[in-house]
Design a protein around this nucleic acid. Sequence first.
DNA 1: CGACTTGCCGAAACCGGTTTCGGATCTCAC
DNA 2: GTGAGATCCGAAACCGGTTTCGGCAAGTCG
Lengths: 356, 356
Amino acid sequence: MDKNLGTIAAGDRRNRVTISDMADALGLTKSTVSRAMNGYSDISEATQLRVRRMADKLSYQPLSHAQAIKTGRTRSLGLVLKLSDHDAQRPFLAEFLAGLSAGAHAEGWTLTVAASDSEADMIQTFRTLLRDGKADGFILPRAICDDPRVRLLREADVPFVLFGRQDDDTDCVWFDILGEDAMRDAVAHLAALGHKRIGYINGGTQYAYATLRKAGFVQGMRDAGLGVDPDLMIEGAVTSIEGAQAARTLLDRKTPPTAIVCAVDFAALGAYQAATERGLVVGRDVSVMGYDGIPEGAHADPPLTTYAVDNRVAGERLSNILIRRIRGEDPDTLRETALARFVDRGSTGPAPTEQT
Amino acid sequence: MDKNLGTIAAGDRRNRVTISDMADALGLTKSTVSRAMNGYSDISEATQLRVRRMADKLSYQPLSHAQAIKTGRTRSLGLVLKLSDHDAQRPFLAEFLAGLSAGAHAEGWTLTVAASDSEADMIQTFRTLLRDGKADGFILPRAICDDPRVRLLREADVPFVLFGRQDDDTDCVWFDILGEDAMRDAVAHLAALGHKRIGYINGGTQYAYATLRKAGFVQGMRDAGLGVDPDLMIEGAVTSIEGAQAARTLLDRKTPPTAIVCAVDFAALGAYQAATERGLVVGRDVSVMGYDGIPEGAHADPPLTTYAVDNRVAGERLSNILIRRIRGEDPDTLRETALARFVDRGSTGPAPTEQT
DNA sequence: CGACTTGCCGAAACCGGTTTCGGATCTCAC
DNA sequence: GTGAGATCCGAAACCGGTTTCGGCAAGTCG
């Protein structure tokens, strides 16, 4: 057992075990230790093993910024937040960060976070972070169509991973939740309850997910043998205000829907309000389903039936994928998806009997 | 004008301007350039100026991890989030991070973020980050009484800055919002509306702010010439559930309060629910005031009157203070406070006329 | 049995900075 | 005119790693 386990204070920076200590302890040279640690094939298996064993006996880990000066890489992942997105990502951010951090930490990496106000600012932030070697690759949350970040990083040949999918897959890895499956399932759920006129409130059309979820909804309608009425589909609601507005439009149609599927929970909560304004009881007079699993949904009245996304796991997977990408693994093996979890709460019910 | 402004891509890591380039361009040696950049007094004023001018002509900035290998410092700030806090800090996190990042960026620093599940894990995270030189100092959000993080960092002699205040100020710098002033002001506001029986729902007692805000409330009551009734004060409500519970207790007293001041917005929203359950209309039958300025408050019915905290500014100030602390400025000049902004919305009204 | 690989490791240069040490020049008093 | 300081900068070592290059010993082949 190592006895200096207790004194891991600041002074630790001084009596940190270095590669020279390793070399001395093993009777080898620095270069051999280094190449052994990095798995070079010109070091014998036996020596590699001996070095590795000594490494975790002395709990030696190369200083990332010491390696960086030669290799340019610091074992850190970059995350650049865009402020205008914040309203939307607010509920997820904490868990998402926790996941990212956990995924990075598991491999001995760290997470560098920056924020930017404008898009131009964001691009500049990427460049600075890269130039100063503060990040070896980037996590890009909220994939959007024809993403400027993707363009930048691709042409700069810098590794990145998307949260969300992208049309052009070349050299592009991602993790995503199958929102389209959720939307399809939502329709099936409602159809099973007897609903025939089902409205759909989509999210921001600039985001990649919007197209997918909408397609999922349409597919669900087809699967259920229901007609798709363009008049019952509205785009671009990501806040509860926008959701309320959209729901008002839907509920004021001549033949209003008996159920509304929302691509975003916030919009669904807005739909609650629109329904209440019209004297409709959610879950009885009109069914509402959301997607995201925001905590506010659980406390709404009635609790919102939705598809919950595990943002912690998403973060973990994203970090892991990005690290493997940076290490050079084949992009084609680095795309993952997961399913949203159906949370059946009180906001859906049997279709009200017709009484035109 | 520099012509390679367009090619700031990844290759930039190669044609980055180094200290040797600087030395060549100036006809000096690396050591002179280095000492000039760092303001050593054995370099003449004239030379320092010449070097600095060339530095921003070539836009030279020393590579932080190259300096780190000798100095041990990487110009990066550490932030360790504790997961169990997340529910509470969720609404603020995005803006807080944006502020921290902006404050760091303004000085050419970066932000390293980590998350931890347990407290033991958190301590370990601090140590790892320190040992690997991933952070030169830490921002500690949510100051708590007898903070274990403070103990650790203090004995390790690592710089840190608190968001919130601490009893023991020695070598300890902080930024804080004067919550006690807000609470005092809230009482004055209500007293001016004729309220005499005012309830108080405090936040988590382990947090430093709870003591302060409570004291502010008490002071406000005294200032208004009102008696402080311990039966109308409840501790430890940080969620809307806990707030509802506390408000129920208050509203079910023999002589219930006509107004309730909450140390935390979430609790105030819970109070809304408790009031509604009892057929009371918030803003008419009972006044409610909160603190924090969460966005949900603005959309509540009626919109919550509260004291808004600017978490972006807080983050900015915290970064700035920490950086100056790391640079060695006198701690006594590095403590700042700011005021919460009163947001008068619809949740308060004149005290109902007595009708016992 | 000698030449040619091959496997394995050491020596030394290098990365981009910082820091110690010492030496050249200049000033000034005596 | 000279010795003592003071001023200012260069030379070189150093930090903790990586990488290139070359050499030695063992194995292979004709």
